[in-house]
């Protein structure tokens, strides 16, 4: 099918973009990579009267590694963030997750910030932002900017804290501290599809290489990314000898996923437990190696 008609706006600056968005209010939609929005328009599941295309606002096409993390501008495409060596050094979980997002051709066009605002509970990047305690920066005409932490940004399936008239200008993914590791594990029906279940994990060790903190954000397990703190369950054991089966059981008990045509609720619960424990185990392993790294220090 084809989209229904809309008024097309092509601002070139951030100021112009915010002005147009303010004018359009609830009838306006931002067009970034279009890789989620255009399918919805084609199927007429969305029919905004004003489309505000930010693809010419080149000042939003930024990837900056600073202030202890990675700040990704609204026009940075998945592929550019995935390819950035500086991002890989500062926050390897981003690249690991991006390689699981759709296919390379979709990643050439889709944006990281667009994926966050789209807020699909099956998407990888919202889970990454959640487990890292990142944030999204929103701006509106005449209203300045506000930073919304990940825990408040995702409000429901395909719903975020972005209000009508607001533009998400960037997202911030904090770097990991020293002696930390991360991993993303998922199972999809076909490589590149949205995952049936998956988990982004971050493990931080103490000076004796025992698990000080273990966090995991699960995808497709609820209306928003489901953040679980497994630190207690990991019981401050040495990374190499933890009881990962107990972790998997604890995750299964904590989540309440829904079933659909691809997976029953029970299967999804089981799979999430397995994947969360696997991601935590790999992250713990990586954290141990991080400690052994000759360079040491924060990455």
């Amino acid at each position: 099918m084809k989209p229904s008609a809309f008024d097309y706006h092509a601002p070139r600056t951030l100021g112009e973009t915010l002005e147009v968005l303010a004018g359009a209010g609830p009838h306006g939609k931002v067009l970034a990579g279009g890789q989620s929005l255009i399918p919805l328009l084609n199927m007429r599941l969305a029919a905004p009267s004003h489309l505000v295309d930010i693809n010419r606002v080149t000042s939003l096409d930024t990837i900056a590694v600073r202030d202890g993390g990675v700040r990704v501008g609204a026009l940075a495409r998945h592929a550019a963030v995935e390819r950035s060596a500086a991002v890989a050094r500062a926050q390897p979980l981003l690249g690991a997750a991006l390689r699981l997002v759709a296919h390379p051709v979709i990643r050439n066009r889709g944006t990281v910030v667009g994926s966050l605002v789209h807020a699909d509970p099956s998407a990888e990047l919202p889970a990454v932002l959640t487990v890292l305690d990142g944030s999204v920066r929103l701006a509106r005409h005449g209203g300045g900017e506000r930073d919304v932490p990940a825990g408040e940004f995702f409000t429901g399936p395909l719903e975020s804290a972005t209000e009508p008239g607001e533009l998400a200008v960037s997202a911030f993914f904090p770097a990991l501290p020293a002696r930390a590791g991360s991993a993303f594990c998922e199972v999809a029906r076909r490589h590149g599809d949205y995952a049936m279940a998956g988990a982004a994990a971050v493990v931080v060790l103490d000076e004796d290489l025992r698990i000080a903190s273990a966090r995991v954000a699960c995808v497709s397990a609820g209306p928003v990314p489901v953040l679980l703190d497994m630190s207690e369950v990991c019981a401050h054991r040495p990374a190499a000898s933890d009881d990962w089966d107990a972790v998997a059981r604890a995750v299964r008990d904590l989540i309440d996923p829904e079933g659909d045509i691809h997976a029953t609720a029970g299967y999804r619960r089981h799979l999430t437990g397995v994947l969360a424990a696997r991601a935590l185990r790999i992250a713990a392993q990586e954290a141990t190696e991080d400690r052994d790294d000759a360079t040491g220090g924060p990455r």
């Binding site: 097309y8 092509a10 067009l31 279009g34 890789q35 255009i38 399918p39 084609n42 295309d53 693809n55 390379p104 051709v105 979709i106 050439n108 066009r109």
Partner: peptide, 11 residues
């Protein structure tokens, strides 16, 4: 490479 069905010509 991009999907031409997920790109508006005017963009």
């Amino acid at each position: 490479p991009v999907r031409s069905c997920l790109t508006f010509a005017v963009s």
